[in-house]
Design a protein around this nucleic acid. Structure first.
Length: 465
RNA sequence: UCCCCAGUAGCUCAGUCGGCAGAGCAGGUGGCUGUUAACCACCGUGUCCGUGGUUCGAGUCCGCGCUGGGGAGCCA
């Protein structure tokens, strides 16, 4: 019969206690150890918070020899009393009555107590959550995920699980990863083309690039819905803002126009920023201190200012009048470049900017055409440092206009039969947007590479871990 | 995919004009100390990314490739 494992108290609870405690059990990993005359200071972290607990190991402990061999990365279970610390730097410390060494990390443990570069840590992505910075980032990621669900729940939205496997390329938001069970060494063919009738689904299949079209069907049934799940893009993008697998939040609202869409997006960003400041103060503090000195300022600005809303046409005029030399020229009808977007939000307005009513030629088929005949009810939210963080639109609810648009863009009409059905039966004005979860995390932490806010990033030529 | 930059010890980096491969940190040993990026002394560490070339001689110069980073495009 196994002995019952001792129940531990997590360090975040422990350090917030008001009074000393005779008996506590702390389990975690050694961050560093400092020897003193007759005893040793051990810094233990268990991932529940940024702070370590300082453990005092007296040389009267029967395994003290072994304790002095504990190096960074080793795992321990400490039983002892919680006492006020006479030293500066921490309120509490644990005076160990016994220390069980669960495992000793050899000196090959790659993490040191000094600072490592993000590039190096990316090569040991399986160990990097054990560092202060990444531990903080992933605690914030978790908190933010929860807050997103709460935001929508509080507002009466239903959470929809849209499919990850998709049957056709009609989503049009990017290159699809193909999914197949065909034997790649012996692909069946017909008239020189691959015969997908032998494939698992009997036709070409891929991983979703967006849950939007599915979410629209549910918005037209349940009213206000959202999705929050993984999204896949097989683009050969090599930037600090793109990964092949990322998480996206896509609300979709019935009886909602573009203005209300923008209202919700703005409210949501402010809510999430508030949650992070409130619930992750200590972890955010690390980023404000070591990663981005402007972080608090940026978040405060987001919280306190009304987002500047301008039309695409106004944006182009501002950029033309700016006299700034851009690498790419600004012209009506051309999409805004990263440098243009950043100029608007970072230099001109110095706060989040919503650009809306884009020329229809540069936007997808499903966006609602405006009465001017040349623009669509689209909106992008631009924030400092990141650029585009949200893209959304009012959807085209008029069947004839939508069909004409599909024809105009030479898309396969028959693939959209079910999508068009929603406009055939009880169609109503509706709107939605997509928020890139990782980009939100970058914005709220100051982390400047998207590969560092997702546990195991997938990018071209990189699927390790 | 395009443009630019980089690759030297476990990590971070220096390496002059082409002439014997270096430091700090981490690790080990000893000392000191209610310490806290602890401190002091000593010790070990190399496919200089790979490959081909120029040269008496290449970490250093040239070509090609690989990997990483920054920027651009695609977008979230």
């Amino acid at each position: 019969m196994n002995k019952r494992m001792k129940k531990r108290i997590k360090i975040n609870k422990l350090i917030s206690l008001e009074t000393s405690v005779d008996e506590v059990v702390v389990k975690g990993w050694v961050r560093t150890r400092r020897d003193s005359k007759g005893f040793s200071f051990i810094e233990v972290n268990d991932g529940s918070c940024l702070k370590n607990i300082q453990v005092i190991a007296d040389n009267s402990l029967d395994n003290y020899d072994e304790i002095t061999r504990l190096i960074t990365g080793s795992a321990v279970a400490v039983s002892g009393s919680l006492e006020e610390s006479p030293g500066g730097g921490q309120k509490w410390e644990v005076h160990a009555k016994s220390i069980e060494i669960i495992s000793i990390a050899p000196e090959t443990y790659p993490l040191q107590k000094k600072r490592h570069t993000d590039e190096f840590l990316r090569t040991i992505a399986h160990l990097r959550p054990r560092t202060n910075k990444y531990g903080a980032a992933f605690r914030i990621r978790s908190e933010l995920s929860f807050a997103i669900h709460k935001f929508f729940k509080d507002r009466g939205f239903s959470y929809i699980h849209t499919p990850i496997l998709t049957g056709s390329d009609c989503e049009g938001a990017g290159e699809l990863f193909q999914v197949t069970t065909l034997d790649m060494k012996n692909v069946p063919s017909i008239d020189g083309n691959i015969d997908y009738s032998h494939d698992f689904f009997g036709k070409e299949a891929g991983l979703t690039v967006s849950g939007q079209l599915s979410a629209e069907m549910f918005a037209l049934a349940l009213g206000d819905v959202y999705t929050f799940g993984p999204t896949f893009r097989a683009e050969n993008s090599n930037t600090s803002r793109h990964v092949a697998e990322f998480w996206m939040i896509e609300p979709e609202m019935a009886f909602c126009d573009l203005e209300q869409d923008m209202d919700l997006a703005e409210e949501m960003l402010k809510y999430l920023a508030g949650v992070v400041l409130e619930n992750c103060a200590e972890d955010i503090g690390l980023f404000a201190k070591f990663v981005d000195k402007q972080l608090m300022n940026t978040i405060e600005t987001l919280l306190s200012s009304d987002f500047k809303r301008i039309t695409y046409e106004e944006a182009v005029k501002i950029l033309e009048k700016s006299k700034k030399k851009f690498e790419y020229d600004v012209a009506y009808g051309k999409d805004l470049q990263s440098e243009h977007e950043r100029y608007l939000t970072e230099t001109h307005f110095k706060k989040p900017v919503i650009v809306y009513n884009y020329p229809k030629a540069i936007k997808p088929f499903y966006m609602r055409q405006n009465d001017d005949g040349k623009t669509v009810a689209a909106m992008d939210i631009l924030v400092p440092r990141i650029g585009e963080i949200i893209g959304g639109s009012q959807r085209e609810e008029r069947l004839d206009v939508l069909e004409a648009r599909i024809k105009e863009m030479a898309l396969p009409m028959e693939e959209y039969w079910w999508y068009l059905d929603s406009r055939r039966y009880g169609s109503v004005p509706h709107s939605g947007f997509g928020l890139g979860f990782e980009r939100l995390l970058m914005f709220l932490t100051g982390i400047n590479n998207i590969r560092d806010v997702i546990p195991f990033p997938r990018t071209p030529k990189n699927i390790e871990f």
